[in-house]
């Protein structure tokens, strides 16, 4: 299982990559493996605003429905348009092609509440 060093992580198994004031968000390798074959992805619209911890999308595998929660507050500036048509990208490339949304940070201090790769790996292995 993969835990890229440059990402931040949540206990809900989302990852965050911060570039300037924009956070790219997806679900982790662990999350996609737990879900199994992803068959449906529901994303928000550009311009939607989310508070930290609120559900911004849904990922469904054959057997399960999972909400995806905003790791940070802010406005959606871009969504991965390919995901709804090819949800299996989430299984094949959770950290790159499988990114879900980009959110403009409303409060950069929220990033301090996220885990680094080592802490997330420990969290997952304890689970």
């Amino acid at each position: 299982m993969d835990f890229p060093e440059e990402l931040k992580y949540t206990e809900e198994h989302e990852w965050v990559l911060v570039e300037d004031d924009v956070a790219t968000i997806g679900i982790t390798d662990f999350a996609q493996e737990q879900l199994g074959d992803v068959v449906f992805v529901e994303l928000p619209e550009v311009g939607d605003r989310f508070d930290v911890g609120k559900s911004f999308g849904v990922v469904e595998s054959v057997k399960a429905v999972s909400d995806v929660y905003a790791p940070v507050s802010g406005e959606v500036v871009e969504i991965n348009e390919e995901l709804p048509d090819e949800p299996e990208i989430l299984n094949n490339s959770p950290y790159e092609d499988g990114w879900m949304v980009k959110i403009r940070l409303a409060d950069a201090a929220e990033l301090d509440d996220l885990m680094d790769a080592a802490a997330y790996q420990e969290f997952v292995e304890k689970d």
Partner: peptide, 9 residues
């Protein structure tokens, strides 16, 4: 067992 290699496969 609910799955081995994946439900779709």
């Amino acid at each position: 067992p609910v799955q081995y290699s994946g439900v779709i496969n």
